[in-house]
């Protein structure tokens, strides 16, 4: 049974999901960032690959939508690398999703990534990846501590 292939969003050119992603251009074009239908295809194909690589199943495209909404307003997001950066961000997100063992909400992970991206990483995806690996490592250490087991695991992500 390969639920990953069955449940993960399959790309249909005029599906609601594609139209929803295209509609985000209305907001992001203010920053000069616009996705073409081909760009969306690239993003979704990459998303499905990452989900498969990380052995995850996703029901909708909310994460990709949120990544576009949040990161398009970053002063470091460059038009020429928009799609590549979004793909990198997708990979970092699902890496974090797995490493935090589903104990942190999607939106908190995205906001944490955004804070670092716009802060100490100054728009560097490589640096962001490294910082998120550190965070994930610390999260796992905290998880092993008795205190963190009883006091809630999400506090560091607030």
């Amino acid at each position: 049974m390969n639920l990953s292939d069955i449940l993960n969003f399959q790309l249909l050119p005029k599906s609601n999901s594609v139209m929803e992603l295209l509609s985000l251009n209305e907001k992001t074009k203010e920053q000069g960032l616009v996705l073409t239908p081909d760009d969306i295809k690239t993003l979704v194909v990459f998303r499905n690959k990452v989900l498969r690589d990380y052995a995850r199943v996703e029901l909708g495209i909310e994460v990709l939508q949120e990544l576009i909404k949040v990161f398009s307003s970053s002063p470091y997001m460059e038009k020429d690398h928009y799609v590549d950066t979004l793909n990198e961000l997708q990979e970092i997100f699902y890496y974090l999703r797995n490493e935090t063992e589903d104990k942190v909400e999607d939106i908190k992970l995205i906001m944490k990534m955004n804070d670092y991206f716009n802060g100490s990483c100054a728009g560097s995806v490589e640096l962001l990846r490294s910082k998120m690996e550190e965070l994930a490592e610390n999260f796992k250490k905290d998880m092993m501590c008795l205190d963190s087991l009883f006091e809630g695991d999400e506090s560091a992500w607030d």
Partner: peptide, 24 residues
């Protein structure tokens, strides 16, 4: 598949849109 999706949403309590394949 629709019922499965509803059960997965119930499992994550709406806080995440994805689960591990093992959980699914």
């Amino acid at each position: 598949m629709q019922v499965l999706q509803q059960l997965i949403r119930k499992y994550t309590q709406g806080k995440s849109t994805s689960v591990t394949s093992e959980t699914a």
